[in-house]
Design a protein around this nucleic acid. Structure first.
Lengths: 237, 237
DNA sequence: CGGTATTTGTTCGTATGTATT
DNA sequence: AAATACATACGAACAAATACC
Protein backbone atom coordinates (compact mmCIF):
# COMPACT_ATOMS: atom_id res chain seq x y z
CA UNK A 1 0.00 0.00 0.00
CA UNK A 2 1.15 3.51 -0.70
CA UNK A 3 1.22 5.13 2.70
CA UNK A 4 3.30 7.98 1.38
CA UNK A 5 1.42 11.00 2.62
CA UNK A 6 2.28 11.90 6.20
CA UNK A 7 -0.46 12.23 8.77
CA UNK A 8 0.17 15.92 9.23
CA UNK A 9 -0.22 16.54 5.51
CA UNK A 10 -3.54 14.71 5.41
CA UNK A 11 -4.77 16.68 8.41
CA UNK A 12 -3.66 19.92 6.80
CA UNK A 13 -5.53 19.01 3.65
CA UNK A 14 -8.68 18.19 5.58
CA UNK A 15 -8.57 21.48 7.43
CA UNK A 16 -7.83 23.30 4.19
CA UNK A 17 -10.93 21.81 2.64
CA UNK A 18 -13.01 22.63 5.70
CA UNK A 19 -11.95 26.23 5.35
CA UNK A 20 -12.44 26.29 1.59
CA UNK A 21 -15.96 24.96 1.98
CA UNK A 22 -16.85 27.58 4.50
CA UNK A 23 -17.10 25.22 7.40
CA UNK A 24 -14.74 27.60 9.13
CA UNK A 25 -15.33 31.16 7.98
CA UNK A 26 -12.66 33.86 7.97
CA UNK A 27 -12.13 35.08 11.49
CA UNK A 28 -13.49 31.92 13.01
CA UNK A 29 -11.53 30.18 15.67
CA UNK A 30 -10.46 26.66 14.88
CA UNK A 31 -10.84 23.98 17.52
CA UNK A 32 -7.99 23.82 20.00
CA UNK A 33 -4.94 21.75 19.19
CA UNK A 34 -6.00 19.27 21.82
CA UNK A 35 -9.48 19.00 20.33
CA UNK A 36 -8.10 18.52 16.83
CA UNK A 37 -5.67 15.93 18.13
CA UNK A 38 -8.58 14.00 19.61
CA UNK A 39 -10.68 14.43 16.49
CA UNK A 40 -7.97 13.08 14.24
CA UNK A 41 -6.71 10.61 16.78
CA UNK A 42 -3.14 11.87 16.70
CA UNK A 43 -0.65 13.55 18.95
CA UNK A 44 -0.83 17.28 19.47
CA UNK A 45 2.51 17.71 17.72
CA UNK A 46 1.11 16.21 14.56
CA UNK A 47 -1.74 18.72 14.61
CA UNK A 48 0.74 21.50 15.22
CA UNK A 49 2.72 20.40 12.19
CA UNK A 50 -0.41 20.60 10.07
CA UNK A 51 -1.38 23.99 11.47
CA UNK A 52 2.14 25.21 10.84
CA UNK A 53 1.82 24.27 7.20
CA UNK A 54 -1.47 26.14 6.94
CA UNK A 55 0.02 29.17 8.65
CA UNK A 56 2.87 29.13 6.15
CA UNK A 57 0.33 29.41 3.37
CA UNK A 58 -1.31 32.28 5.20
CA UNK A 59 -4.53 30.40 5.62
CA UNK A 60 -4.62 30.54 9.38
CA UNK A 61 -2.87 32.57 11.99
CA UNK A 62 -2.28 31.47 15.57
CA UNK A 63 -2.16 33.53 18.73
CA UNK A 64 -0.64 32.03 21.80
CA UNK A 65 -3.18 31.70 24.56
CA UNK A 66 -6.02 32.44 22.18
CA UNK A 67 -6.14 29.84 19.44
CA UNK A 68 -5.83 29.38 15.71
CA UNK A 69 -8.00 31.58 13.53
CA UNK A 70 -8.90 31.44 9.89
CA UNK A 71 -7.11 34.35 8.29
CA UNK A 72 -9.31 37.02 6.82
CA UNK A 73 -8.31 37.06 3.21
CA UNK A 74 -7.19 40.42 1.95
CA UNK A 75 -9.70 42.46 0.09
CA UNK A 76 -9.20 42.16 -3.63
CA UNK A 77 -9.06 45.61 -5.10
CA UNK A 78 -9.06 45.82 -8.88
CA UNK A 79 -6.94 48.56 -10.37
CA UNK A 80 -8.02 49.65 -13.79
CA UNK A 81 -8.71 52.67 -15.83
CA UNK A 82 -11.87 53.33 -13.89
CA UNK A 83 -11.32 52.96 -10.21
CA UNK A 84 -14.46 53.27 -8.17
CA UNK A 85 -13.86 52.47 -4.55
CA UNK A 86 -17.44 51.67 -3.65
CA UNK A 87 -18.02 49.48 -6.67
CA UNK A 88 -14.79 47.64 -6.10
CA UNK A 89 -15.67 46.72 -2.56
CA UNK A 90 -19.27 45.86 -3.27
CA UNK A 91 -18.07 43.56 -6.02
CA UNK A 92 -15.66 41.96 -3.55
CA UNK A 93 -18.62 41.29 -1.28
CA UNK A 94 -17.68 43.86 1.30
CA UNK A 95 -19.42 46.85 2.77
CA UNK A 96 -17.61 50.03 1.78
CA UNK A 97 -17.27 52.96 4.10
CA UNK A 98 -15.44 56.24 4.32
CA UNK A 99 -14.52 58.62 7.10
CA UNK A 100 -13.57 62.16 6.22
CA UNK A 101 -10.60 63.10 8.37
CA UNK A 102 -10.04 66.61 7.17
CA UNK A 103 -11.00 68.98 4.41
CA UNK A 104 -8.98 72.09 3.87
CA UNK A 105 -7.84 74.53 1.25
CA UNK A 106 -4.14 75.04 0.84
CA UNK A 107 -1.47 75.90 -1.69
CA UNK A 108 -0.32 73.16 -4.00
CA UNK A 109 3.29 72.11 -3.94
CA UNK A 110 5.33 72.30 -7.12
CA UNK A 111 4.86 68.67 -8.08
CA UNK A 112 1.19 68.77 -7.13
CA UNK A 113 0.63 71.82 -9.26
CA UNK A 114 2.48 70.24 -12.12
CA UNK A 115 0.48 67.03 -11.93
CA UNK A 116 -2.80 68.92 -11.83
CA UNK A 117 -1.61 71.19 -14.63
CA UNK A 118 -1.98 74.28 -12.48
CA UNK A 119 0.22 77.31 -12.22
CA UNK A 120 2.71 77.20 -9.35
CA UNK A 121 1.23 78.30 -6.07
CA UNK A 122 -2.36 77.56 -7.08
CA UNK A 123 -4.90 76.74 -4.41
CA UNK A 124 -6.22 73.22 -4.05
CA UNK A 125 -8.71 71.45 -1.84
CA UNK A 126 -6.98 68.76 0.18
CA UNK A 127 -9.10 65.93 1.50
CA UNK A 128 -7.82 63.32 3.90
CA UNK A 129 -9.92 60.27 4.36
CA UNK A 130 -10.06 56.76 5.68
CA UNK A 131 -11.56 53.97 3.62
CA UNK A 132 -13.22 51.04 5.30
CA UNK A 133 -14.24 47.55 4.28
CA UNK A 134 -16.79 45.99 6.57
CA UNK A 135 -15.87 48.63 9.11
CA UNK A 136 -12.18 47.73 9.02
CA UNK A 137 -9.77 50.44 7.86
CA UNK A 138 -8.01 49.40 4.68
CA UNK A 139 -6.68 52.61 3.21
CA UNK A 140 -5.70 56.18 4.00
CA UNK A 141 -5.88 58.75 1.28
CA UNK A 142 -5.02 62.30 0.45
CA UNK A 143 -6.87 63.74 -2.50
CA UNK A 144 -6.20 67.07 -4.12
CA UNK A 145 -8.80 68.87 -6.21
CA UNK A 146 -8.14 71.94 -8.34
CA UNK A 147 -10.39 74.44 -6.63
CA UNK A 148 -10.19 76.87 -9.54
CA UNK A 149 -11.46 74.21 -11.90
CA UNK A 150 -14.04 72.82 -9.48
CA UNK A 151 -15.31 75.70 -7.37
CA UNK A 152 -18.16 73.67 -5.90
CA UNK A 153 -16.12 70.61 -5.01
CA UNK A 154 -15.82 71.39 -1.31
CA UNK A 155 -19.55 71.52 -0.68
CA UNK A 156 -20.02 68.52 -2.96
CA UNK A 157 -17.58 66.52 -0.90
CA UNK A 158 -19.34 67.55 2.29
CA UNK A 159 -22.68 66.55 0.82
CA UNK A 160 -21.54 63.25 -0.63
CA UNK A 161 -19.67 60.46 1.06
CA UNK A 162 -18.41 59.29 -2.31
CA UNK A 163 -15.79 61.03 -4.40
CA UNK A 164 -17.48 59.83 -7.57
CA UNK A 165 -20.78 61.38 -6.55
CA UNK A 166 -19.09 64.60 -5.49
CA UNK A 167 -17.34 64.92 -8.81
CA UNK A 168 -20.58 64.30 -10.63
CA UNK A 169 -22.24 67.04 -8.62
CA UNK A 170 -19.37 69.29 -9.68
CA UNK A 171 -19.99 68.60 -13.33
CA UNK A 172 -17.56 65.73 -13.91
CA UNK A 173 -19.78 63.01 -15.27
CA UNK A 174 -16.95 60.59 -15.79
CA UNK A 175 -13.29 60.38 -14.96
CA UNK A 176 -10.52 57.94 -15.65
CA UNK A 177 -7.18 57.12 -14.16
CA UNK A 178 -4.49 58.62 -16.34
CA UNK A 179 -1.51 57.53 -14.34
CA UNK A 180 -0.76 55.27 -11.41
CA UNK A 181 2.49 54.75 -9.58
CA UNK A 182 2.92 52.06 -6.98
CA UNK A 183 5.52 51.52 -4.32
CA UNK A 184 5.89 50.10 -0.84
CA UNK A 185 6.47 51.99 2.38
CA UNK A 186 6.30 51.34 6.08
CA UNK A 187 3.64 52.89 8.27
CA UNK A 188 4.52 55.79 10.52
CA UNK A 189 2.84 56.37 13.85
CA UNK A 190 0.02 58.49 12.48
CA UNK A 191 -0.78 56.14 9.66
CA UNK A 192 -0.66 53.16 12.00
CA UNK A 193 -3.09 54.88 14.32
CA UNK A 194 -5.64 55.57 11.64
CA UNK A 195 -5.34 52.21 9.94
CA UNK A 196 -5.26 50.35 13.24
CA UNK A 197 -2.06 48.55 12.40
CA UNK A 198 1.38 48.54 13.91
CA UNK A 199 4.04 51.10 13.20
CA UNK A 200 6.42 49.64 10.65
CA UNK A 201 3.69 47.56 9.03
CA UNK A 202 3.89 47.38 5.24
CA UNK A 203 1.89 49.85 3.19
CA UNK A 204 1.19 49.86 -0.51
CA UNK A 205 1.24 53.44 -1.73
CA UNK A 206 -0.62 54.33 -4.87
CA UNK A 207 -0.15 57.72 -6.45
CA UNK A 208 -2.71 58.46 -9.09
CA UNK A 209 -3.97 61.15 -11.38
CA UNK A 210 -7.57 61.21 -12.50
CA UNK A 211 -8.68 63.17 -15.51
CA UNK A 212 -12.06 64.17 -16.88
CA UNK A 213 -13.45 63.22 -20.27
CA UNK A 214 -11.56 66.10 -21.83
CA UNK A 215 -8.27 64.94 -20.34
CA UNK A 216 -8.11 67.74 -17.81
CA UNK A 217 -6.89 66.67 -14.36
CA UNK A 218 -9.62 66.65 -11.73
CA UNK A 219 -7.98 64.80 -8.88
CA UNK A 220 -4.49 63.92 -7.80
CA UNK A 221 -3.55 62.09 -4.69
CA UNK A 222 -2.02 59.27 -2.76
CA UNK A 223 -3.60 56.23 -1.22
CA UNK A 224 -1.90 54.09 1.38
CA UNK A 225 -3.32 50.59 1.53
CA UNK A 226 -2.69 48.35 4.51
CA UNK A 227 -0.56 45.61 2.97
CA UNK A 228 -2.01 42.97 5.23
CA UNK A 229 -5.57 43.72 4.26
CA UNK A 230 -5.53 44.56 0.60
CA UNK A 231 -4.40 42.92 -2.60
CA UNK A 232 -4.50 45.05 -5.70
CA UNK A 233 -5.42 43.06 -8.76
CA UNK A 234 -4.61 43.96 -12.30
CA UNK A 235 -6.90 42.15 -14.66
CA UNK A 236 -6.61 42.96 -18.31
CA UNK A 237 -9.69 43.60 -20.30
CA UNK B 1 16.39 38.40 32.90
CA UNK B 2 15.17 38.65 29.38
CA UNK B 3 14.94 35.07 28.18
CA UNK B 4 12.74 36.16 25.31
CA UNK B 5 14.37 34.56 22.30
CA UNK B 6 13.75 30.85 22.03
CA UNK B 7 16.70 28.53 21.72
CA UNK B 8 15.77 27.52 18.21
CA UNK B 9 15.67 31.16 17.11
CA UNK B 10 19.11 31.83 18.49
CA UNK B 11 20.47 28.74 16.78
CA UNK B 12 18.83 29.75 13.52
CA UNK B 13 20.40 33.17 13.77
CA UNK B 14 23.81 31.72 14.43
CA UNK B 15 23.55 29.42 11.45
CA UNK B 16 22.23 32.27 9.35
CA UNK B 17 25.26 34.35 10.22
CA UNK B 18 27.58 31.45 9.54
CA UNK B 19 26.08 31.15 6.11
CA UNK B 20 26.05 34.88 5.47
CA UNK B 21 29.72 35.13 6.39
CA UNK B 22 30.63 32.35 4.02
CA UNK B 23 31.53 29.87 6.72
CA UNK B 24 29.14 27.58 4.94
CA UNK B 25 29.17 28.29 1.22
CA UNK B 26 26.22 27.63 -1.12
CA UNK B 27 26.05 23.93 -1.78
CA UNK B 28 27.93 23.04 1.38
CA UNK B 29 26.52 20.42 3.67
CA UNK B 30 25.76 21.56 7.15
CA UNK B 31 26.74 19.35 10.08
CA UNK B 32 24.23 16.65 10.88
CA UNK B 33 21.36 17.43 13.18
CA UNK B 34 22.95 15.30 15.84
CA UNK B 35 26.25 17.15 15.51
CA UNK B 36 24.53 20.53 15.68
CA UNK B 37 22.55 19.36 18.69
CA UNK B 38 25.80 18.49 20.43
CA UNK B 39 27.46 21.73 19.35
CA UNK B 40 24.64 23.86 20.73
CA UNK B 41 23.95 21.57 23.65
CA UNK B 42 20.30 21.10 22.84
CA UNK B 43 17.94 18.38 21.76
CA UNK B 44 17.89 17.37 18.14
CA UNK B 45 14.31 18.66 17.82
CA UNK B 46 15.42 22.13 18.73
CA UNK B 47 17.99 22.03 15.96
CA UNK B 48 15.30 20.76 13.59
CA UNK B 49 13.11 23.70 14.52
CA UNK B 50 15.94 26.08 13.64
CA UNK B 51 16.67 24.32 10.37
CA UNK B 52 12.99 24.39 9.55
CA UNK B 53 12.97 28.15 9.97
CA UNK B 54 15.96 28.49 7.68
CA UNK B 55 14.35 26.21 5.13
CA UNK B 56 11.24 28.40 5.23
CA UNK B 57 13.37 31.36 4.31
CA UNK B 58 14.88 29.34 1.50
CA UNK B 59 18.35 29.55 3.00
CA UNK B 60 18.89 25.81 3.34
CA UNK B 61 17.23 22.80 1.91
CA UNK B 62 17.25 19.37 3.49
CA UNK B 63 17.37 15.99 1.83
CA UNK B 64 16.37 13.01 3.87
CA UNK B 65 19.21 10.59 4.29
CA UNK B 66 21.70 13.07 2.91
CA UNK B 67 21.78 16.15 5.08
CA UNK B 68 21.02 19.84 5.15
CA UNK B 69 22.63 21.96 2.45
CA UNK B 70 23.06 25.66 2.01
CA UNK B 71 20.67 26.65 -0.74
CA UNK B 72 22.11 27.89 -3.97
CA UNK B 73 20.16 31.05 -3.35
CA UNK B 74 16.85 31.80 -4.97
CA UNK B 75 16.66 33.47 -8.30
CA UNK B 76 14.08 35.04 -10.50
CA UNK B 77 13.07 35.98 -13.89
CA UNK B 78 9.45 36.60 -13.28
CA UNK B 79 6.42 38.21 -14.59
CA UNK B 80 5.64 41.78 -15.38
CA UNK B 81 9.30 42.47 -15.49
CA UNK B 82 10.24 39.82 -17.97
CA UNK B 83 9.08 41.52 -21.08
CA UNK B 84 8.84 45.03 -19.86
CA UNK B 85 11.50 44.94 -17.20
CA UNK B 86 14.43 45.38 -19.51
CA UNK B 87 12.63 47.83 -21.73
CA UNK B 88 11.46 49.88 -18.81
CA UNK B 89 14.90 50.13 -17.30
CA UNK B 90 16.52 51.01 -20.58
CA UNK B 91 13.89 53.65 -21.12
CA UNK B 92 14.59 54.97 -17.66
CA UNK B 93 18.23 55.27 -18.58
CA UNK B 94 19.38 52.38 -16.43
CA UNK B 95 21.39 49.30 -17.18
CA UNK B 96 19.31 46.19 -16.51
CA UNK B 97 20.90 43.08 -15.10
CA UNK B 98 19.96 39.75 -13.71
CA UNK B 99 21.64 37.17 -11.54
CA UNK B 100 20.40 33.62 -11.69
CA UNK B 101 20.51 32.39 -8.14
CA UNK B 102 19.19 28.89 -8.53
CA UNK B 103 17.43 26.61 -10.94
CA UNK B 104 15.96 23.44 -9.55
CA UNK B 105 13.15 20.99 -9.99
CA UNK B 106 10.79 20.47 -7.11
CA UNK B 107 7.23 19.53 -6.27
CA UNK B 108 4.60 22.23 -6.58
CA UNK B 109 2.61 23.24 -3.54
CA UNK B 110 -1.16 22.98 -3.60
CA UNK B 111 -1.75 26.59 -4.53
CA UNK B 112 1.05 26.58 -7.06
CA UNK B 113 -0.34 23.47 -8.72
CA UNK B 114 -3.78 25.06 -8.79
CA UNK B 115 -2.56 28.27 -10.35
CA UNK B 116 -0.62 26.39 -13.03
CA UNK B 117 -3.56 24.07 -13.58
CA UNK B 118 -1.52 21.02 -12.66
CA UNK B 119 -2.49 17.97 -10.66
CA UNK B 120 -1.46 18.13 -7.00
CA UNK B 121 2.11 17.08 -6.42
CA UNK B 122 3.23 17.79 -9.97
CA UNK B 123 6.84 18.71 -10.62
CA UNK B 124 7.80 22.23 -11.54
CA UNK B 125 10.99 24.04 -12.42
CA UNK B 126 11.67 26.73 -9.85
CA UNK B 127 13.89 29.61 -10.82
CA UNK B 128 15.11 32.16 -8.30
CA UNK B 129 16.79 35.32 -9.37
CA UNK B 130 17.84 38.83 -8.61
CA UNK B 131 17.12 41.75 -10.89
CA UNK B 132 19.50 44.65 -10.98
CA UNK B 133 19.43 48.23 -12.17
CA UNK B 134 22.87 49.70 -12.71
CA UNK B 135 24.21 46.85 -10.63
CA UNK B 136 21.95 47.63 -7.69
CA UNK B 137 19.48 44.90 -6.66
CA UNK B 138 15.93 46.04 -7.10
CA UNK B 139 13.90 42.84 -7.15
CA UNK B 140 13.93 39.23 -6.03
CA UNK B 141 11.75 36.71 -7.75
CA UNK B 142 10.64 33.13 -7.88
CA UNK B 143 9.28 31.74 -11.14
CA UNK B 144 7.63 28.38 -11.57
CA UNK B 145 7.33 26.56 -14.87
CA UNK B 146 5.22 23.46 -15.48
CA UNK B 147 7.91 20.98 -16.41
CA UNK B 148 5.40 18.51 -17.82
CA UNK B 149 4.08 21.12 -20.20
CA UNK B 150 7.49 22.56 -21.02
CA UNK B 151 9.97 19.68 -20.88
CA UNK B 152 12.71 21.71 -22.49
CA UNK B 153 12.32 24.78 -20.37
CA UNK B 154 15.25 24.11 -18.06
CA UNK B 155 17.80 23.94 -20.84
CA UNK B 156 16.10 26.81 -22.58
CA UNK B 157 16.49 28.91 -19.45
CA UNK B 158 20.14 27.98 -19.16
CA UNK B 159 20.72 28.86 -22.79
CA UNK B 160 18.86 32.14 -22.75
CA UNK B 161 19.28 35.05 -20.42
CA UNK B 162 15.72 36.07 -21.13
CA UNK B 163 12.59 34.25 -20.05
CA UNK B 164 10.84 35.44 -23.14
CA UNK B 165 13.52 33.87 -25.33
CA UNK B 166 13.52 30.68 -23.26
CA UNK B 167 9.78 30.31 -23.60
CA UNK B 168 10.03 30.91 -27.31
CA UNK B 169 12.63 28.17 -27.56
CA UNK B 170 10.18 25.94 -25.68
CA UNK B 171 7.47 26.57 -28.20
CA UNK B 172 5.68 29.45 -26.52
CA UNK B 173 5.76 32.09 -29.19
CA UNK B 174 3.81 34.54 -27.12
CA UNK B 175 2.52 34.79 -23.61
CA UNK B 176 0.44 37.28 -21.73
CA UNK B 177 -0.08 38.27 -18.14
CA UNK B 178 -3.37 36.72 -17.14
CA UNK B 179 -3.39 37.91 -13.59
CA UNK B 180 -1.35 40.14 -11.35
CA UNK B 181 -1.82 40.72 -7.66
CA UNK B 182 0.05 43.34 -5.70
CA UNK B 183 0.51 43.81 -2.01
CA UNK B 184 3.04 45.13 0.47
CA UNK B 185 5.22 43.13 2.82
CA UNK B 186 8.27 43.66 4.97
CA UNK B 187 11.60 42.10 4.14
CA UNK B 188 12.82 39.11 6.08
CA UNK B 189 16.49 38.48 6.73
CA UNK B 190 17.10 36.51 3.55
CA UNK B 191 15.37 38.99 1.30
CA UNK B 192 17.18 41.86 2.96
CA UNK B 193 20.49 40.12 2.36
CA UNK B 194 19.93 39.63 -1.34
CA UNK B 195 18.42 43.02 -1.97
CA UNK B 196 21.02 44.73 0.20
CA UNK B 197 18.39 46.45 2.29
CA UNK B 198 17.48 46.31 5.94
CA UNK B 199 15.28 43.68 7.51
CA UNK B 200 11.81 45.17 7.90
CA UNK B 201 12.23 47.36 4.84
CA UNK B 202 9.11 47.64 2.70
CA UNK B 203 8.69 45.30 -0.25
CA UNK B 204 6.21 45.41 -3.08
CA UNK B 205 5.19 41.86 -3.86
CA UNK B 206 3.79 41.04 -7.24
CA UNK B 207 2.20 37.66 -7.87
CA UNK B 208 1.51 36.92 -11.49
CA UNK B 209 0.35 34.21 -13.83
CA UNK B 210 1.42 34.10 -17.45
CA UNK B 211 -0.46 32.08 -20.01
CA UNK B 212 0.31 31.05 -23.55
CA UNK B 213 -1.75 31.94 -26.61
CA UNK B 214 -4.09 29.04 -25.88
CA UNK B 215 -4.69 30.25 -22.35
CA UNK B 216 -2.62 27.49 -20.77
CA UNK B 217 -0.46 28.64 -17.86
CA UNK B 218 3.23 28.68 -18.66
CA UNK B 219 4.66 30.58 -15.72
CA UNK B 220 3.61 31.52 -12.22
CA UNK B 221 5.65 33.38 -9.70
CA UNK B 222 6.29 36.16 -7.25
CA UNK B 223 8.49 39.20 -7.47
CA UNK B 224 9.56 41.23 -4.49
CA UNK B 225 10.56 44.76 -5.39
CA UNK B 226 12.55 46.86 -2.96
CA UNK B 227 10.03 49.56 -2.10
CA UNK B 228 12.73 52.16 -1.67
CA UNK B 229 14.12 51.62 -5.12
CA UNK B 230 11.19 50.84 -7.35
CA UNK B 231 8.02 52.50 -8.40
CA UNK B 232 5.69 50.52 -10.60
CA UNK B 233 3.85 52.61 -13.09
CA UNK B 234 0.58 51.61 -14.65
CA UNK B 235 -0.15 53.50 -17.79
CA UNK B 236 -3.11 52.09 -19.63
CA UNK B 237 -3.30 52.03 -23.31
C1' DC C 1 -9.50 44.47 38.79
C1' DG C 2 -7.48 40.02 39.89
C1' DG C 3 -6.97 35.22 40.04
C1' DT C 4 -7.58 31.05 37.52
C1' DA C 5 -8.30 28.11 33.72
C1' DT C 6 -7.37 27.68 28.93
C1' DT C 7 -4.49 27.53 24.88
C1' DT C 8 -0.51 27.95 22.19
C1' DG C 9 4.81 27.87 22.29
C1' DT C 10 9.04 25.64 23.56
C1' DT C 11 11.92 21.83 24.95
C1' DC C 12 13.33 17.35 25.98
C1' DG C 13 12.70 12.30 25.51
C1' DT C 14 11.85 8.08 22.74
C1' DA C 15 10.75 5.14 18.89
C1' DT C 16 10.16 3.91 14.15
C1' DG C 17 10.15 4.67 9.12
C1' DT C 18 12.62 5.79 4.87
C1' DA C 19 16.01 7.56 1.77
C1' DT C 20 20.94 8.16 1.04
C1' DT C 21 25.64 6.95 1.36
C1' DA D 1 23.89 -5.11 2.93
C1' DA D 2 24.85 -2.04 6.60
C1' DA D 3 25.46 2.33 8.58
C1' DT D 4 24.09 6.98 8.43
C1' DA D 5 20.83 10.74 8.50
C1' DC D 6 16.60 13.02 7.91
C1' DA D 7 11.20 12.44 8.46
C1' DT D 8 7.41 11.26 11.12
C1' DA D 9 5.00 10.42 15.32
C1' DC D 10 3.88 9.82 20.14
C1' DG D 11 4.49 11.28 25.10
C1' DA D 12 5.47 14.59 28.89
C1' DA D 13 6.29 18.89 31.10
C1' DC D 14 6.68 23.67 31.67
C1' DA D 15 6.44 28.59 29.98
C1' DA D 16 3.91 32.41 28.21
C1' DA D 17 0.02 34.77 26.52
C1' DT D 18 -4.76 35.03 26.53
C1' DA D 19 -9.53 34.49 28.03
C1' DC D 20 -12.84 34.03 31.50
C1' DC D 21 -15.21 34.58 35.79
Amino acid sequence: MSKKTPLWAAIARTLREDIAQGRYAPGDKLPTEAALATRFGVNRHTVRHALSALAEDGLVRTRRGAGAFVAARPTEYPLGKRVRFNENLLRAGRRPGRRELSLETRTASDTEAQMLDLSPGARVLASHGLSLADGLPIALSESLFPITRLPEIERALRDNPSVTAALQQSGIADYTRAETRLTAEVANATQALHLQIHEGAPLLRSTSLNVGPDGVPVEYGHTWFAGDRVTLTLTEG
